[in-house]
Design a protein around this nucleic acid. Structure first.
Lengths: 137, 137
DNA sequence: ATAGGTGCAAATGTTTTGCTGTCAA
DNA sequence: TTGACAGCAAAACATTTGCACCTAT
């Protein structure tokens, strides 16, 4: 991918459909899942096309990449940084709302003198569905 | 690695030295860096031994794994969860202190009903040294 | 027409696994 | 003595790259 600022992105059929898929789900899909979805419309689709476009959409700030290092990156149709909760049992990832987070960050940056450009905050544990379910595992 | 709870860990020379290395640095090293350090004492050391022991030390809760998905996992000799700041320029990772974070998490778990077991919070931006340095890059 | 994009195959970089011999308890 | 562990090589896994052809603009 070109890193030139004046690079002109094209809206190919694949990329257009891909953005639709990403926007229409809250499931924080993996690259592989996006691939399998997109493959339905483009049978000859290549995985590298998916990765290439994920990077481009991220660069365009149309999507957000969530680094969950333990497994692999996941992507979010919503480009605004926000905290997530990952259930360790069912593996789902939820958007959560933590009020007052901005103030806390402001305090932190004031104390450290760092220039804060973003964050990623991932909580983990057991979700509502799983925390009372002692049946499996 | 055995997942049996009654698994008896041995304190091999390699693992002992590795824990010393991890405890005595604040640099949030990569697996590869640990390998290169440990290799000085064990010339025939294998990378898989490092990974195996990182996983074991993590399982023993003697170290903490920091998932920085964009690059690769990093490890910390301090097992208590705490926020980090990653400088996008010099690539260093700092421990930071954000007061009031616990309260915020308590609010979040009360609202969501999730069972919170941990978190990882990584801020990123420019550190003190880099934010005023427009010379390079 | 041109330059960005696609599909394919091969490469990359990190982490894991199978196996055989070894050493800590 | 015995079973957890070391070292080695190969595999696994997500992701990236080189290249020739294709297509959006």
């Amino acid at each position: 991918m070109n890193t030139n600022k004046n690079y002109i992105f094209r809206e190919t059929r694949q990329r257009k459909r891909m953005m639709e898929i990403l926007s229409s789900t809250k499931s924080h899909p993996t690259a592989d899942w996006v691939y399998s979805q997109l493959k339905e419309d483009f049978p000859s689709l290549s995985l590298s096309t998916v990765y290439r476009n994920l990077r481009i959409l991220k660069k365009q700030k149309r999507i957000l990449e969530l680094p969950f290092g333990h497994t692999f990156d996941r992507y979010d149709g919503n480009p605004a940084p926000h905290p997530h909760f990952a259930c360790q049992k069912c593996k789902r990832v939820f958007d959560i709302d933590i009020s007052g987070l901005e103030n806390i960050f402001q305090n932190a940056t004031r104390e450290t003198n760092f220039k804060l450009e973003g964050f990623n905050l991932n909580l983990y544990g057991l979700c509502n569905d799983c925390k009372n379910d002692h049946a499996s595992s």
